[in-house]
Computed example of a mutant assay.
Amino acid sequence: MELKDKVVLITGSSRGIGAATALAFAKAGSKVILNARHELPTELTDQLDALGADYQFIAGDMADPAVVADFATQAWEAYGHIDVLVNNAGITRDKLLVGMKLTDFDAVLNVNLRGPFMLIQALIKKFNKQRSGSIINLASVVGLHGNAGQANYAASKGGIVGLTKTIAQEGALRGIRCNAIAPGMIKSDMTDVLSDKVKEQLLTKIPLRRLGQVDEVAQAAVFLAQNEYVTGQVIVVDGGMTM
């Protein structure tokens, strides 16, 4: 699929992987709809402006059903259609299972799994009508093999994998594709706070011996949007950690 002038909606796109994905699609000539709970940082808008990007921003909390329904309508009306949806918004509330509160579990599931479900459900009839649409969900390697202290996060991302494959099956006859990306250890605000000792331990588990870059995850999203014969897949971007 040629990405020039295609409309791409990316949730949780104010920083990190989401922001990098927005910039990657903007560089490809797409019209980009960004989303976050708060305003976009000036650094990101400056980068988009420097690219001459055609973009809009719609604030919204993807955990709130009423907000998601209104957000979906606003996003579709922004350009009259949507070609690519990237469900990137996500949070963590890490604790060992013995100390994890139900509120910690629910908060993560609500944003990371229920949010994408609600947004896809709100847009699926429109995708069906236009007989096209590429949906890209952000999973995680944690959703594939689990991780101590992340029962809620792992459950949400494992759920994303199942949701992705189901939507791929349901949408195929209408020309709707659905794939997921499972990033590994990506350099971000979360990894920046880790001690050098912890980083060294993590690198021993990664064959490429380095953390990934947000741009490398964004490139996978661009690939999945472009290739019209790929659906129901989980693309792992982790430097070989889960081989």
Rank of each mutant, 00 (worst) to 15 (best):
I124V: 15
V32T: 13
A172M: 08
K187W: 14
V8G: 04
L40R: 00
G12T: 03
V234I: 03
V67A: 14
R210S: 08
G171D: 05
S195E: 04
I181A: 03
K31Q: 11
L96Y: 13
K101L: 11
G12R: 05
Q201T: 10
E39T: 10
V217R: 03
M62F: 11
L109Q: 11
M190G: 02
S140H: 02
L3M: 13
F127N: 03
V98L: 14
K157F: 03
V198W: 06
T21S: 03
P207I: 09
V236P: 03
V214E: 12
K27V: 09
D64E: 07
G80S: 08
A36R: 07
G12P: 12
Q74N: 14
M100Q: 14
C178K: 04
G171S: 05
D192V: 13
G171N: 07
M241P: 00
M190F: 06
D64H: 08
G18R: 02
V67C: 14
L208Q: 15
P65Q: 05
L3Y: 15
L9M: 08
G232C: 01
P207R: 08
R93E: 10
R174F: 15
D94W: 05
A19I: 11
Q121S: 12
G240C: 12
V222G: 05
N227S: 12
F223Q: 08
G158K: 02
K187I: 00
K4H: 14
A59Q: 12
I235W: 14
Q219F: 12
N87A: 03
D70C: 02
D64P: 06
I160Q: 03
G12C: 02
A50C: 07
L23R: 04
V7T: 10
K4W: 10
L96K: 11
N179L: 01
I176N: 04
L119Q: 04
E2Q: 13
T242G: 06
N137G: 05
Q121D: 11
Q201K: 14
G232H: 11
V198C: 00
F105N: 03
I206K: 09
V86G: 08
R15C: 00
V108Y: 04
V108I: 04
